[in-house]
Write a protein that binds this DNA or RNA. Structure first.
Length: 499
RNA sequence: GCGCCUCUAGCUCAACGGCAGAGCAACGGACUCUUAAUCCGCAGGUUCUGGGUUCGAAUCCCAGGGGGCGCACCA
């Protein structure tokens, strides 16, 4: 090799037709660069170096130039490479004119990516630095970076230009890193327990497994409409029928509904299914997984969310919907409560009801509007009305209810799980009830999925399933107020003119 | 979909019916130990868009657009 890897000299010396030296462009940066140290590693390794010391060690680092302090014939700069567990890695560059190549020439600009090779040293003030003995431009920033102190505050710009936000908003970087670790830890944790990760279709001929409006698309060659999945549930249970007793999927799902600080049209749902278990098993699994993640990511099971303390330590409280509603509004209501009485309660709390709503629908409505948001510490709400749970198995003791639970944390639904309905005849009856709602105008009700029924007819053993909202969980553990803070590129209206 | 708030230089923000400004960034200059370096100088605008009111509009009004928050929706 004629030049060290950081050198672009060979490229810059190509014949030029103009008298001026060419500006470095994307065409003049090297094809490859090989840093051998990061800011975090240097801090770790040379943290104890006394002020005014040269280490005798030469390293190559790379990153973006974020700050610059030119002092006549001596310049300091801050190179950021986002190394380290906090993704906040920065190292100072020390550049004396006497030894720094091209000091007076085309010095790098703020925002440029550069690679630097030089001796590790400390300044007289004791700041760990890399002396710039050689440097090369890796990418020029043609657009000005935001204010070096105030950064970006316009949320629109932050979401649309996340590639800038991630450099200037440490919080954003930290949050996204936490999310990445959350997903990684979850995978490992599940695999350690015998779950295998699978990928099921995003295109569904029949939308199912949830109660939501789907996005519709069209396949030209097949000449058929397809729906983007609203949940992977029905395919994952087919896999249990197929002989995989423990499966999970980190499923991006799509729901054609409103946007809010808690809803993005595409979001990530972890769904897992476990043969031979019931909903008690998955309540235990949920609390153990979340406590594990909190310990790994937040250093303990006591965390702060939006200024309020949350105790995620195992075990979490378990309470039936009936008991929780009773606690909140002082009435014992369940799926056997007469419809008239439930309607009267709805009226009392100014909740709209429809003629077609059965007791289960009304009870759920009352619970959600009066009780759910009032729960702060984690609680498993159990035993939902069958009417609103078309895929859940009937409660083994209480008629009209199913063995279903949701975990409510900080007033929000974190997950939803249930003992799965395994009886194909009963499932057909439930699907048909849904289909009646659907033809009655309820666009969110499910349709009859004949292939799913066929799968059940081959035999689904006792099974429990669970869906955890990964975005919600990330919000909780990252202490993020908006779901957009935990999604790298949240859904926004397309820009009219992005230039 | 409804309500409230918001939009000014690349970025962060002033000016609130009377000459569109500052800091940072950029550009020119001084400076060999800075830490958001400092200092001097220079340049930078469709005040989101279109109407209206007014002698005069960034400012007030109407309509539209982007964004935020709340409501509705999201079992």
């Amino acid at each position: 090799m004629a030049h060290p890897p950081w050198s672009a000299t060979d490229l810059r010396q190509e014949p030029v037709t103009t008298e001026e030296a060419p500006e470095p462009t994307a065409a003049t940066v090297p094809y490859r660069f090989e840093p051998d140290a990061s800011a975090a590693e240097l801090a770790e390794r040379f943290g104890e170096l006394e002020a005014g010391t040269e280490s005798g060690v030469t390293v190559t680092v790379a990153g973006r130039l974020m700050l610059r302090r030119v002092q006549g014939k001596l310049a300091f700069a801050t190179l950021q490479d986002n190394s380290g567990p906090g993704a906040d890695g920065r190292i100072q560059l020390f550049a004396p004119a006497a030894t720094t190549p091209d000091f007076e020439g085309s010095a790098p600009a703020l925002g440029d990516w550069i690679g630097v090779t030089g001796e590790v040293m400390t300044t007289r003030r004791g700041e760990l630095s890399v002396r710039v003995d050689a440097w090369t431009l890796l990418a020029a920033a043609r657009r000005a970076f935001p204010d070096k102190w105030h950064g970006l505050s316009d949320t629109d710009t932050r979401y649309r230009q996340r590639y800038v936000d991630l450099w200037v908003t440490e919080e954003a970087r930290r949050t996204m890193l936490l999310r990445s670790r959350l997903v990684s830890l979850t995978r490992r944790w599940l695999e350690d327990r015998g779950f295998i990760e699978v990928e099921t279709p995003v295109f569904h001929p029949i939308p199912g497994g949830g109660y939501a409006r789907p996005f519709t698309t069209h396949h030209n060659a097949l000449g058929t409409d397809l729906y983007l999945r609203i949940a992977p549930e029905l395919y994952l249970k087919r896999l249990v029928v197929g002989g995989f007793p423990r499966v999970f999927e980190m499923a991006r799902v799509f729901r054609n509904e409103g946007l809010s600080s808690r809803h993005n049209p595409e979001f990530t749902m972890l769904e897992l299914y476990q043969a031979y278990g019931d909903y008690h098993d998955h309540m235990a699994l949920t609390e153990e997984l979340v406590a594990h993640l909190a310990t790994e990511l937040c250093g303990g099971t006591t965390i702060t969310y939006q200024g309020r303390e949350l105790d995620l330590a195992v075990p979490w409280r378990r309470a039936t919907m009936t008991d929780l509603v009773d606690e909140q509004i002082g009435r014992r209501l369940d799926a056997a409560t007469p419809t008239d009485e439930l309607r009267a309660v709805c009226d009392e709390y100014e909740l709209p009801w429809h003629d077609g709503d059965g007791p289960g629908m009304l009870l759920l409505e009352i619970y959600e509007k009066t009780t759910e948001a009032a729960q702060w510490q984690p609680v498993f709400v159990t035993d939902y009305p069958e009417e609103v749970s078309p895929l859940s198995r009937a409660h083994r003791e209480v008629p009209g209810l199913v063995e279903r639970f949701e975990a409510i944390v900080a007033g929000r639904e974190l997950c939803n799980g249930f003992s799965e309905l395994v009886d194909p005849d009963e499932q057909r009856t439930r699907f048909e009830a849904q289909a009646r709602r659907r033809s009655g105008g309820d666009e969110e009700a499910m349709a009859v999925d004949e292939d799913y029924l066929r799968a059940l007819e081959y035999g689904l053993p006792p099974t429990v399933g669970l869906g955890i909202g990964i975005d919600r969980l990330a919000m909780l553990l990252a202490d993020a107020p908006s779901v957009r803070d935990v999604i790298l590129f949240p859904t926004l209206r397309p820009e009219a003119d992005p230039s």
